[in-house]
Computed example of a mutant assay.
Amino acid sequence: MTTALITGATAGLGAAFARRLARDGHDLVLVARNGERLREEAAALHDRYGVEASVTVADLSTEGGISAVEERLADQDRPVDLLVNNAGFGNKDTFLNVPVEDELTMLKVHCEAVLRLTSAAAGSMRARGRGGVVNVASVAAFVPRGTYGASKAWVVQFTQGVAKDLAGSGVRLMALCPGFVRTEFHQRAGMDAGSVPGWMWLDADKVVDAAVKDLARGRTLSIPDARYKALMGAANLLPRGLLARASSSTGRRYGPR
């Protein structure tokens, strides 16, 4: 029996990863800030799939939260075979309309936490000669999208770089770059995503299914769905100014504070 640790596990892609991995027979370590939701989800997954599901309540925007998950990942007596760095969020406005402290918090969750947790997990995995890390990024990594897009671009470059460094070690790394997914993400960020065309929305469970397949194939980058593969290909051909205008307006209308 293998164990997977998932951050941001109570909703969206994190919850979808938990369902898929539990269905595949993995024991789980679920990480998020909301202890009550974590325990409810862990109990439901245990009852439905018969796997062990433990919880770690941690806020990855804090030093204590990151350290707690690092410690769990480094525990050789309870090895983690797959890490899914999924925790993340969007800010509620555009640059300069968001307090710089909130921008720095985003970098801590999207970049520092991903780096430190990947390091803790991959070190233990390399010692055992096996393991995998999925770092959830976004197609926003490939278009001008403020701090959010920049942080996700960092995730992609970091993940692919580390994957090359660890080639042949038995440890696989992959950056997952979905487009718009039907989750709580936009609602939590106070964004009105009503302008996003229906055909651009993806199902969280299908995104995770594609990610699991791509990781098994040894890919270091996964862009689920042919529609987004085509869009990202076309984006490479567009002038950066035009791409920036399209990116800044799509799905970024904000409601009242």
Rank of each mutant, 00 (worst) to 15 (best):
E40D: 07
A244H: 02
G194L: 01
A44N: 02
A137N: 09
L202G: 04
L242V: 13
G168Q: 13
E101P: 01
R252T: 05
S119E: 15
V208K: 01
F95P: 02
S222V: 03
R130D: 15
L5E: 06
L96G: 08
A53S: 14
S249I: 05
P256W: 09
L104K: 11
R245G: 09
V156Q: 07
A32C: 03
S222K: 03
T2M: 07
R188W: 00
R252W: 00
L176D: 02
S169V: 04
M174T: 10
R130G: 13
T220L: 02
Y148A: 12
V181K: 00
A244E: 10
W201I: 00
E63S: 15
D77Y: 04
A15P: 04
E52F: 00
D225M: 12
E63K: 13
A113Q: 06
Y49A: 13
H110M: 07
G190H: 06
Q157E: 05
A11N: 10
A246H: 13
F17D: 08
G255M: 02
A193S: 14
P99M: 14
Y254E: 03
L28I: 05
L173F: 06
A58C: 11
R257C: 03
G149A: 14
V98C: 11
A210K: 10
Y148W: 11
L221A: 06
M174D: 06
A16Y: 15
R172F: 10
K152A: 13
M125A: 04
R227E: 09
M106V: 03
V29Q: 13
S247M: 08
I66S: 06
D192G: 06
K92Y: 04
L82Y: 03
K92P: 04
Q157V: 10
